[in-house]
Amino acid sequence: MLRRWGSYTDLDTVLIVHGGREADFEQLPHPHKVLVSDSRFLTHDHQRDKQSYGPVLQSAAGWLAQRDFSHVLYAEYDQVPVAQDLLSLYRRRLEDEQADLLGMHLRRVDSTSYPHYLYHAHDPAFTRLWSELSVREDKDVVLSMLGAGSFWRRPCFDAVAGAEESVPVYTELFLPTLAHHLGFRVRGLPDQSPWNTHLGERVGELASAAANGAWTLHPVKTLWSASPGAGRRSLSTRVQDRLSRSAA
């Protein structure tokens, strides 16, 4: 994984936030690494447990405090770069959009059928949270984006990382909605979103993604696994993928 990222960027600019076993963390051959063991991050049923990336962002913000980076690319372990100049592409898009945060599959979900929204809106504290901290006129707006592949202007990243998560909110809702209500401009990446999806195993699409203008590809969970049959998918996964594709 480090070798791959190292061919796209200077590894001295890469921080690994590890949520796995401590023994594996110790063996990571990289100087910039943080171990996160917060139960709000290490959830099992991420959506129902309202997984938080807060501990990850806080760790990263602490590391960044001593460095003068202007932007942050947030990638998950099963997301890989495929465009050689992906950081320039992200930065240029951020400037073109005059945005503070770019996210995959960004959508507005308040008052909709979106399952994560309906699950959270059942708790009055969720609505109260935004009305208490928002600088916006419309305090009902709720946004959602994919957890992987977001690109941040540093002030936006620091502000969101530094905010207290007084009510548990699933990270895909929390990050873009908080950034929006703090006054930052959040925009989507509609051309990149099809290459970065929630479900499936896309390791077989690396070449076509690179040839068709993708900047990153997600998810590629089996790319780092050498176990035989790692690329084999269950019937359930294949049916789920088919449903996702037909919906898209």
Partner: peptide, 19 residues
Amino acid sequence: TAHPPPDFTSGRDSDDNPH
């Protein structure tokens, strides 16, 4: 109906607002 893609202007007026 569906919401249009989010396109809200910046709501910040502090010195760190680049736009």
